[in-house]
Amino acid sequence: MTAPVSPRPTRRRLGARLWAARMEYLFMLPGLILFGLLIGYPMVASDWFSLLDWSGFDAKSAFIGLGNYRELWNDPYFWGAFRRSFFFMLGTVPMQMGLSLVLAIVLNNRLMKWAAVFRTAIFLPVVAPVAVTGIVLTLMLSPFNGPVNGLLMSLGVIRAPLDFLGSPDLAMPTLIVVFVWKWIGTTMVYWLAALQTVPDELYEAARLEGVKGWQMTLFVILPIILPFAIVIALVSAISALNVFPLIQSMTGGGPFYATEVMEVYIFRNAFASTAGSLPRLGYASAAGVFFGLAIMVLTLLQIASVRWMRRSTRDV
């Protein structure tokens, strides 16, 4: 007796499957083309340029293998910029996330009057052009009759005006505060979206259990929106590492490299030729590739954290 043969699942050929989903692929095509042109090609080109001794000016270039990377390794100004980029990120992300979470929780309260007005006011800096913001803030922060110094002096916080952007010690902290002020609206919107996922029933149940005030936030809301924190932190961290326009318009990386982050370093080497020297597109590309890899590692770590967090909450 032979065992009954179960029908083998029919495995459609790749071509047939592609054809069946042709409309989906068709709709993806414009995005793929743009991705290839605007992201894929520059990434591959940068990888190649990083292996060249090339000014970017003419067709002549010399393949030098990992020579640019070796030079980077021994360049204290590269490591200085690298360190400052991550210092900037560590300075901005926790402050931005913490403050925006507080704002979101406050503004999420349905009993609060004028919540929409406050939300708009907090979001307004986000839509202002970065370069314009930078220039205006340079005037606002000026130690010569700048309104910020005037206010601090009138409140008795300081006795003499502070050179916020000209002092090597103050320039970076100032930029961190400006960045947080500029982008806190975006993070607040993310948190508000996360807060929408907390079911009303949960609030009601918690209230019935006698949970009030900060306990509600700490024991009910936060555990639910915590997985969002990883994603928001990831987005905020990447945003904090892409800070070129703000720094370029406010300090240009100065004074004496005190605020030179990686993007400014790359720009300086790639385009802003120093006196007597041609730009170094190959070298700048190597710095860009190295920095890109560092961000990728950071992203992978955060993705791993998200997965770990999801597993943890599922197990609970």
């Binding site: 340079t138 922060l141 000026s142 130690p143 010569f144 700048g146 005006p161 050179d163 916020f164 952007l165 000209g166 002092s167 406010m250 300090t251 100065g254 004074p255």
Partner: peptide, 12 residues
């Protein structure tokens, strides 16, 4: 020296 020269460009 004028205060804040490190934070201003030549036109300013």
């Amino acid at each position: 020296v004028f205060p804040g020269v490190m934070g201003m460009n030549a036109p300013q």
